[in-house]
Design a protein around this nucleic acid. Structure first.
Lengths: 244, 244
DNA sequence: CGTCGCTTTGATAGCCTTCAAGAAATGTGG
DNA sequence: CCACATTTCTTGAAGGCTATCAAAGCGACG
């Protein structure tokens, strides 16, 4: 199916990533570090060459010696249940940690795929003590907790039975993410297919399509194939938290 | 409402926990450690005095300087949305990590409450380097990844629209947990109220009650107030993964 | 023994899934 | 650059499942 050392297939840049020059260094472990230790951080991380849309970062079951921080682009993770059904478990933007679940038993528990041209910074688990020694401990803990919280918030979102509330919350969540990235918080990129998003939200493709059409007809959003613009934030918020 | 230094209210035992004598030491960070470093581990952790049912381990918003490992009993975590609705986000048995999400921004993101007489081992975040130095790093990473995976599995469970599949998966998940604890995997303790469980599963109290009745009438389980016995595992599994 | 909270059971309405078909977008070869 | 094939997305109609409202058991506790 694929080579067991699949990880080595992700091509790494020959030189260290050079965190000092990274446009997204304020999003990752570098955030809290002094400028003069950034070269030391760069010694712990290696930047990947650009991965194309559809490329695998790692596959479920691969031996897991690293975790990754998204540097640019978007990734999705998915897992296959024992019944053969595929579940989309997350979407990952710049500065977000991915692949840490491999530390449970040394093998990745999900599959990570680039949704567009993307790059990651790779962190070997064996380098964690080094990362810690230069002050990278707290930011790492923060990223771990952030990832944790992201899964919990999605868990809460899925507890909302109403499909329109799930979609509204997804848009609001994405909006906050864009804000954190310093981008337009009203412009939500949609690099994933409708099928993947519906899967992630626990609803059918048709239902998602209908709800987006409803939101569009109500003037709440402007929906295109690859991006959604939020027009009336307040109405989305009332939909998101309307318990009925 | 409550004192800001609420954490100190959790009463700690005067002496270190003595991991060497802990009946559940094979479940936590002590699992991979040699016998002779267990006293060093005990220097990082402090065991709480028994907490009564309903006692708070910490509250949402409390400053977070520690995380905890459940030593005995069961805890639940919950969070309140901006609309005022409460969501149950998890149940925690022996050996499971709790409260780590506080490391995102220094304050706990949820509230943890004992569901029965319970104890925890408290780990100060500032002691993490010490823990690491005695070889506790990998087990800690494993517990973090385990917690992460637990949230992801629940996320997947909630994507299953059918309520009976959610309940079946919850029972199977709990069964595996009991097996990991070395207890009877067919006997699922139910220390939480039906209301809390329904909330956690994203269905209504009435729906949960009906489904348990259906399972009972079909001879799949024997349901009591505080525990459920699995009678026919195979049928529950086919229900859990039946995509329809 | 009575009250109160929790759980179970019943009936109706609304939402989502499913199946089906059409529209739009994407990719490919000439 | 255009025509065509394929995938992806949208729209429609019917049925099933769950939420909601309502009321009755049941058990804990004073």
């Amino acid at each position: 199916m694929h080579a067991p050392d699949k990880l080595s297939i992700v091509p790494l840049a020959h030189s260290p990533c050079g965190c000092s020059l990274c446009p997204t260094r304020h999003l990752c472990a570098a955030a809290d570090l002094e400028e003069d230790v950034l070269p030391l951080l760069a010694a712990c991380m290696r930047t990947s060459l650009p991965m194309a849309k559809g490329d695998h970062l790692y596959r479920e079951g691969d031996p897991a010696e690293s975790c990754f921080v998204v540097r640019s682009g978007v990734y999705k993770t998915s897992t296959v249940s024992s019944s053969g059904h595929e579940y989309i478990t997350g979407f990952y933007f710049s500065g977000e940690l991915i692949g840490f679940n491999g530390q449970r038993d040394g093998r990745y528990l999900d599959t990570a795929i680039a949704l567009e041209t993307s790059t990651v910074c790779r962190l070997h688990i064996r380098d964690l003590p080094k990362l810690w020694s230069i002050g990278g401990g707290p930011p790492l803990l923060r990223m771990l907790a952030e990832r944790q919280d992201c899964a919990t918030r999605q868990q809460i979102n899925l507890c909302q039975s109403r499909a329109d509330a799930r979609v509204a919350r997804f848009l609001l969540e994405s909006s906050k993410r864009m804000q954190r990235l310093g981008r337009d918080s009203a412009l939500i990129p949609m690099p994933m297919s409708r099928t993947d998003l519906a899967n992630y939200l626990g609803i059918t493709l048709e239902c998602l399509s209908r709800i987006l059409a409803r939101f569009r007809n109500a003037g709440l959003i402007r929906a295109e194939r690859t991006e959604i613009q939020i027009l009336v934030l307040a109405n989305l918020e009332s939909l998101a938290f309307h318990t009925s």
